[in-house]
């Protein structure tokens, strides 16, 4: 099984970044082959739609599961359509989160929360960027 974990750093002993869309890196890990690589999150540098940019990147990596802390409904629905499972964990090392997943101790997010008004607002997000 191929897994992507949102991470503060590039290594397995770095902490999980609990933000999905704006995390620093994704660590790509294979349960058979071990650590594959760390990729910089493109969502972090995008003005808007960070979660979507991040999700596109993960979908392109062809993973089976994602581990992160928080995820907005846009990204979640993309993973659902792509048959990628999403697991939620708290603040811990990436390797620990992967272990917990292997032991089936991580909670799978199976339902999207309320959409955050589709990125829109009456005040605030004015330019759409």
């Amino acid at each position: 099984m191929k897994i992507a974990v949102s991470s503060i750093g590039k290594n397995l002993d770095d902490m999980v970044d609990i933000r999905f869309g704006r995390c620093n890196y994704f660590i790509i890990y294979d349960t058979d082959k071990g650590f594959i690589k760390a990729i910089a999150n493109r969502g972090q540098v995008s003005g808007g739609g960070a979660g979507i940019a991040a999700a596109q990147q993960i979908i392109d990596e062809d993973v089976d599961a994602v581990i992160t802390g928080n995820m907005g409904p846009n990204s979640f629905n993309l993973f659902k359509t792509s048959d990628i499972k999403v697991y939620s964990c708290g603040s811990m090392k990436v390797e620990r989160a992967i272990e917990l997943l292997k032991e089936q101790k991580l909670e799978e997010i199976s339902q999207a929360g309320p959409a955050h008004a589709g990125m829109g607002a009456r005040r605030g997000f004015r330019g759409g960027r």
């Binding site: 970044d17 609990i18 933000r19 869309g21 704006r22 808007g48 960070a50 802390g69 928080n70 907005g72 955050h116 008004a117 990125m119 829109g120 607002a121 009456r122 005040r123 605030g124 997000f125 004015r126």
Partner: peptide, 30 residues
Amino acid sequence: PGIGCPVISSITGSDAVLIVTEPTQSGMED
């Protein structure tokens, strides 16, 4: 202010949020 992308970036990963509201119709809706 608002509820858009910048707000989401303001709150994700923070430990607690304090919402300051006022007793007006528009205040309540937001």
